[in-house]
Write a protein that binds this DNA or RNA. Structure first.
Lengths: 420, 420
DNA sequence: ACTCTTTTTTTCGACCCTCGAATTAAAGGG
DNA sequence: CCCTTTAATTCGAGGGTCGAAAAAAAGAGT
């Protein structure tokens, strides 16, 4: 994969490593960077000084040693370390998200802090084809204008869509919240702002966010399962987010649970989603016709109420959650069989009823197969999917930007004063 | 993954690229290497001359332009190209395979040609724990002795086992052909020969072999499905062979086809293997108790006869193959849903009856889901699984060796005359 | 106040790598 | 025997990393 042939590439890779270390934990002194990246002290000096000269880094105020630890770092003997941090004003990126009936543009500075957010309510289902690009452009323009000179120049746009984009990340193949297929919005953005644009799907961004937030749990291989109207999956294998050959994500929700079973949104029968998506649970609980897919969104309140009824002991509601859990559990069982067990993060409003489902999920996982124990699989829950989606979009955008940073001493950030 | 920090690593990577080019197509002139690797002519000269000095490469006789093409290469104007090839005598590797009741050691020269093969029949099921290592050592010793001075020094051992090894490739977790669990054979080999030892499973090696043999079909993502007594899978995603977290392979055969269905070898019920493994097909065809797993191997002749009966129109035999095909098809449907459709290679004696199964497999794939067409999935068949296993083992061993080659001019091959 | 010790950071030289341009080598053509 | 063409090598420039030595910036001790 990684094509490294010239020594510039070497520098680029090492520079990226330094920036990644600072994104994971900031501020950091050069000595700490040496330890984290494994590079030599001289190399760290060389890289950081070129990044400082280009104003991507700034010398940060003294790092407070937290509250608990004695002030070992303050009252130490030798020359004090000087902390380095990402310069917020070095650049900014736009993190755009397209969710049901809501367009959002978040302006983020280079250090990863949100500058401001602009949101617009629209009927995503009925919006005309060309409108998406236009609206996003004006939304982000507004954000950039409002931020004014305090923000660094916009250098990248990361767009996340609920739905299936193609593997290369340029087109939106299909989305449950859109009427159109094969929607292309990146061109408008690219032209309007003159930056690169990347497109990803929400489940993958949630997976990215989890890794960034809890790297000790989500490391090499794990999956995020998004429980909401539909069922999405962000799959990370061997440290790499799985990007399909044709589509961008793992369609866990459309694996077959019961052949010739209930009708799914996708037009097939018996998908996991048809039992475990909000509409599936609701349909089962209300005794709806399994051949009919509700064409409206079950709102959050309705689902909360349904969960409440189940917890109160309502038999039909309980049964609906049990059948949802069975679908998820059997799906996971197959997933684990195929790819080995790994930590699973359940994300979204559906986790409000997770306690109703967990026992049946674990039961359905079944006992261990060939030397593999499934039952002690690690599950974690996160209710706020939008928050994670945004974080993942931001992380992806900044990482992309870091990777494209110039490598020479006189960097492209020529609009900055050159310090010494 | 790939840690490249120092410029040595750069050289190592480029050297590896040159060697890989020669493994894919040999002999090759320096000019051709320049084109294939994308390196500059001077770099190619530098790398090849150090490899020539260390005797890993030799100047080959003129490349014959094949029979068809006019002798354009012979009657060309300027300075003739000098062809380079891997030096067979530079080193040798041992390719060991452990299959049912058969231990095999193949000595392979550095250019990839088989020097000689030594095989031993043993009852793998009843062999004592420590015996495996001992027998393999003596087998390979014999091969090395027989080859004598004509072979280069043994530099690596690649071992392939039917079954599940751990992800790191040092232990054999479980194997259908062994009585023991957690078998460790590599230590004996390492000590006896003083070389590195790698362990892999057969399905993964078949996948590797396919990529090496038909790179235009098997490129970024594909899977090899091994149809024999059991069902194995070698899965390659994004150019990387999938290696599980705990186990080494994708256990496609143990995905659940029918909940509470027929008993599988693994102790669970309804696995794909319980319907599509040889023993499953045979059990269905003979009306055997689905709660009983035959504890003997159905031999190849019996299966061939069964396939013959099915082709002749025997209803029960046909039904057995149809149910096997249904199991495989539904499994593939789920696989494709989860990971997108990609080319599938069916491998092993089971493909002798593939024409009986293909229609039902394609039917079970079902119609397309969200914008994905499954029905035109690419299928290919290869009868000889052992041949592919061996090829994959050899390729893996040689690639490993190439990767570990010294990078300096005075290479570790000091036992060779230093030319110039 | 001054020197010693400790720790961080920079500087400097050695060494390695790749690349492009110029050069040399090795043919066939006329 | 010289010219043309193509292949391969040589050479110097430029860039990168690293280790050792030097410089910088504190606290500690007297």
């Amino acid at each position: 994969m990684t094509l490294i042939a010239r020594s510039d590439d070497l520098r680029r890779e090492n520079q990226r490593r330094v920036l990644a270390a600072l994104r994971a934990d900031s501020p950091l002194s050069r000595t700490e960077l040496t330890a984290t990246t494994g590079l030599s002290a001289s190399t760290v000096t060389s890289i950081t000084s070129s990044l400082l000269a280009a104003d991507y880094l700034v010398e940060a105020p003294r790092k407070d040693g937290g509250t608990g630890d004695e002030n070992a770092s303050l009252a130490r003997r030798g020359r004090p370390q000087v902390a380095l941090a990402l310069n917020p004003k070095a650049a900014s990126i736009g993190a755009l998200t397209l969710t049901l009936n809501r367009l959002s543009a978040v302006l983020v500075d280079y250090s990863g802090s949100v500058i401001l957010e602009v949101t617009e309510k629209v009927e995503t289902q009925s919006l005309a084809r060309g409108e998406f690009g236009r609206r996003f452009v004006s939304l982000l323009k507004k954000a950039v204008d409002d931020a004014g000179a305090s923000a660094g120049p916009l250098r990248h746009i990361a767009l996340t869509v609920q739905g299936v984009s193609d593997a290369k990340g340029t087109r939106i193949h299909w989305s449950p919240i859109l009427r159109h297929r094969d929607l292309q919005i990146d061109d408008d953005l690219r032209e309007a702002f003159g930056t690169s644009v990347s497109i990803a799907n929400d489940a993958n961004m949630i997976a990215t966010a989890l890794k960034s937030r809890e790297p000790q749990i989500y490391d090499q291989s794990y999956a995020a399962i998004l429980l909401s109207h539909g069922i999405g999956m962000g799959l990370v294998l061997g440290g790499r987010t799985f990007n399909g050959i044709l589509t961008s994500a793992a369609e866990f929700g459309h694996m077959c649970h019961i052949p010739q079973g209930a009708l799914c949104r996708c037009g097939r029968h018996g998908c996991i989603e048809a039992y475990a998506g909000d509409y599936g649970i609701w349909r089962t609980a209300t005794g709806g016709d399994p051949e009919v897919v509700p064409d409206w969104d079950i709102d959050r309140e309705t689902m909360a109420e349904l969960a409440g009824r189940a917890k109160a002991g309502d038999e039909r509601a309980r049964a609906a959650y049990t059948s949802a859990a069975s679908a998820i559990g059997h799906g996971l069982r197959n997933l684990f069989t195929l790819l080995d067990p790994f930590p699973i993060a359940f994300v979204g409003s559906g986790v409000l009823a997770f306690d109703l489902m967990e026992p049946m999920i674990r039961t359905s996982l079944g006992r261990k197969g060939i030397g593999l124990a499934y039952t002690d699989a690690e599950f974690h829950c996160y209710e706020n999917d939008l928050e994670l989606t945004l974080l993942g979009t931001i992380v992806t955008g900044l990482t992309t930007l870091d990777r494209s940073l110039p490598v020479n001493k006189e960097a492209a950030g020529g609009d900055y004063a050159t310090a010494d």
